[in-house]
Amino acid sequence: MKLLKRIIVIVLCLLLIPVTAIATAAVKQRFADGPNRVFSGGPLESGELHSGPDPDWSFVNSIPTIEMQLLDPPQSRRIWITEYDSKIYVWSGYMSTAVGRLWKRWPVEAERDGRAVLRINGKRYERQLVRIEAGAILDGISSAIGAKYPSQTTKAAVEAGEAWVFEAAPRN
């Protein structure tokens, strides 16, 4: 029994090393200029800040992921994006599951304060995230999402609250 206890302690101590490495890397990224592929990052600081009228957003359909930062809290993450009818949309799945609600905090934060900065191809865009919960436009958005990603984000899923969709509208 004593031997078993000792083995468990040794294994846990050895596991503590990679866990510490991952936790340290995650904390370090929080102070970086943007996220990496795994960990969320700090405020998006580099890159030209776009001014003037919106560009033709169709170019985002050839970009796999973008960086998105909320102003409150000022954290950034890597996220999918799609363009439909000259507007851009971001979304989050798994929102009706307990794990999803714990893991995906940004949609709730964005609903509270939708001010955001998107960094696309190194250029920053100030936007206002506006949640879309229902409506015919979801047919088009979900088609655009499905054409670009292996995603199950359908109109029914959005209306059921399983996925939260936001338009990244111009900020007034």
Partner: peptide
């Protein structure tokens, strides 16, 4: 940290 990121992913 890049190595950890890649390994984790």
């Amino acid at each position: 940290d890049d190595f950890i990121e890649q390994t984790f992913q």
